[in-house]
């Protein structure tokens, strides 16, 4: 379980990029739900935390691929592969993320840094 950020520092409609390996995007929807998905778009290198949040969907800021925050599924191309979803726990006012153990769908040319590497 990784501490992400204090709940009060993430207002509704905002996103937080958690510097995990690979990075994770945490979203607080207008409805008050909190979701965590892989931050890197599966199409090309772009941060989904920088994307456009609408309902339970985020639009990639680069090519407008859309992902469902609840399932990670692609709602609109050009992305072809889903992002992973991660469990979220809020405890004592802090948002924690439990990273998925499934392999990440990273875009071509983007690798995962080995643990401990700079």
């Amino acid at each position: 379980m990784i501490p992400a950020c204090p709940l009060r520092s993430l207002p509704r409609g905002e996103a937080f990029r958690l510097d995990a390996e690979p990075p994770i995007a945490v979203f607080h929807t207008e409805d008050g739900q909190i979701y965590a998905i892989d931050d890197t778009c599966t199409h090309q290198d772009a941060s989904l935390a920088d994307g456009w949040l609408e309902g339970c969907e985020v639009e990639c800021p680069l090519h407008a691929s859309k992902f469902d925050l609840r399932t990670g599924q692609v709602d609109a191309p050009p992305a072809k592969l889903p992002v992973r979803t991660h469990r979220v726990v809020v405890e004592d006012g802090t948002i924690f993320v439990i990273p998925s153990e499934a392999p990440a769908n990273l875009p071509p040319g983007v690798g995962v840094r080995p643990q401990g590497a700079a």
């Binding site: 090309q44 692609v74 191309p77 050009p78 072809k80 071509p108 040319g109």
Partner: peptide, 25 residues
Amino acid sequence: YDRPPLSKEFLAGRMDEADLALETE
């Protein structure tokens, strides 16, 4: 296939032809 990477990632050798495919499963 996707053309924008042709001047960037593909030209630099960081993407190959399979990565350029636009169709999905």
